[in-house]
Simulated scan of single mutants.
Amino acid sequence: MSFTAGAQALNVSQSAVSRHIISLEEMLGQKLFDRSGQKLVLTPAGAALLPEVRRSFDRLEHTMNAIGVDPQAGRPIRIHIPPSLLQQVVMPMIGAFHAEYPDIRIDISSSPVTGLPRNETDMAIVFDRPNIDDRVTDLLWLVRVAPVCSPAVAARHPGKSLEAFLADNDLLHVTLAGEPRGLLWSTFARQSRIALDANRGLAFDTLSSAVSYAMHSNGVALADVEMFAPEIAAGRLVVPHDAAINDGFGYYLKLRPDDLADPSISLVRSWLIAQFAARQAAG
């Protein structure tokens, strides 16, 4: 928000920056900055243009850095994947993809966010409810959750109803940005038609952490039974009641429509969709 600071960052004169901005505004037929006050303020047109300009420069810098290291290599494809899905499901897929397509480089980032991550990516698998935005969106995994615990916890409460079992144990939560602490348990209780104090217990930032605590300590986690099927099959995790529900959340692959023109991104998208479809069919 300063022509002077921008000029210093670009190592050019302030007047050069000002002239370029004026030329850009004339070309667009829209003002990008309001210059009437003590400081620059973006106009609606400037605010609309800013994220696209930022993304373009970010991608340009990313590609130039890659070329500087290896002139023959294309830029890596940046993918964001939620931590629990990455650990439980996607990690073997990434290994198989790398073996099949060794020339396509992938940079993976992971953070416990709901929806799109803040960092710039080429595609992202997001944990969210169904929504409509300006991105190409593919459903990869529909979540189906049930209360899970260690075998020891289940053994201490034989014959209890679901409502009594949950009332007698700590609830383990997964925090969702911008959502109430007990949202997932409240949803489960409503669909299961039971009374439940959904706010008590411990909270974790990832589902994997909550389930790990449930396996090695006390408490009951609300977990995706398909995602943790290996732990359930091995007996390390128990589903004490047949009470699985679809809670409205899922994992969605999102990318910008114009990125589909990149053959590598298009290939990764198709490959991931096929892998998730095959896993679901096998399950």
Rank of each mutant, 00 (worst) to 15 (best):
S15F: 13
V17R: 03
R19K: 15
I21Q: 13
I22S: 12
S23F: 13
A45S: 08
E61L: 11
M64I: 14
I67H: 08
A73D: 07
I79Q: 01
S84V: 04
L86Q: 02
Q87S: 13
Q87K: 14
Q88T: 00
M93K: 01
G95L: 10
A99L: 12
A99Y: 12
D103E: 15
I104V: 05
I108S: 01
S109Y: 09
V113D: 07
P117W: 01
R118W: 12
R118V: 11
E120H: 13
D128L: 04
P130C: 03
N131T: 15
N131H: 15
I132Y: 09
I132A: 13
D133T: 00
T137C: 11
L139K: 09
W141Y: 07
V143E: 02
V145T: 11
C149T: 00
S150I: 05
P151L: 09
A155W: 10
R156A: 02
H157F: 13
K160C: 14
E163R: 00
L166A: 07
L166G: 04
N169Y: 08
H173S: 07
V174R: 01
E179N: 04
S186H: 13
T187I: 08
R193G: 09
R200H: 06
L202R: 14
F204Q: 00
D205G: 15
T206G: 01
L207Q: 08
A210V: 05
V211W: 05
Y213G: 04
H216Q: 15
S217P: 05
G219V: 02
I232G: 04
L237M: 06
V239Y: 05
A243P: 08
A244T: 00
I245V: 08
D247V: 07
Y252P: 01
Y252Q: 03
Y252S: 03
D258Y: 12
D259M: 12
L260P: 01
D262S: 15
P263W: 09
I265T: 09
I265K: 08
R279Q: 07
